[in-house]
Amino acid sequence: MKSDDPVTRYALRLGDDALILGHRLSEWMSRAPFLEEDIALGNVALDFIGRARLFYQYAAERVGGGVTEDTFAYTRDVREFTNLLLCELPRGDFAFTLCRQFLYDAFSLPFTEALAGSADSRLAAIGAKAVKESRYHLRRSRDWIVRLGDGTEESHRRCQQALDELWIYTGEMFETDQLIDELVALGVAVDTAELRRCWIETVSETLRAATLTPPTATADVSGGRRGIHTDDLGFLLAELQFMQRAYPGLQW
């Protein structure tokens, strides 16, 4: 399901981020620390699955020829997925999941705000819808970081450890490449490099409130946008795509 159309490729990137992160969040259902949180995590997961569907539907319309949202989710292999590595890392413990979520939400809010101004009206509409979700997601995940960071010794330790592990995957959010440059020039894509300052401000302010230490790692690990993933994505897809692989071409 390869496409050379830049807007399609861009929509797929954004759809992949949302699907893979939503999938990781959905793994929490029936496993959260208490019922209220089970339901709340479910809502966030549903927002991301919904977002993925919007991006995929748009991409499917552009590709045409009987391609649907499910074609993208269920019939592409690892190398064709172009999500951020941050989104695919296994869910880990609750601190890891919420730290990942916070680092992503702090990016996602300014990102969706900017996307809402895209010259591509469909992407702009998805962005406008997603902004409202992201605002709530960030409020929630920021709140959790403060609670866990400034909670017990154990919660602080778990949170700090999660941050340290996640940090090297955050640079990828702000990377640009030829596709982005091309679409930024057309006013279609968001110039993520410009969001970095805003992201750093949100993160620094939150970590301070949470009594957590900003990680010092300077290296970045990336590759997701080029289809170079961690080993974890293959296992995620094996589970996600099981039905469509075992019974190809059927309606469910």
Binding site: I49, E69, Y74, M243, L250, W252
Partner: peptide, 25 residues
């Protein structure tokens, strides 16, 4: 939830399981 055969079924199933947590609550 992680193996649902389509994105729509996945969303529906998540919403349903979430309701069950709500009902328990």
């Amino acid at each position: 939830i992680t193996r649902a055969p389509s994105l729509e079924r996945k969303a529906i199933l998540m919403a349903k399981v979430q309701d069950e947590a709500g009902h328990g609550l």
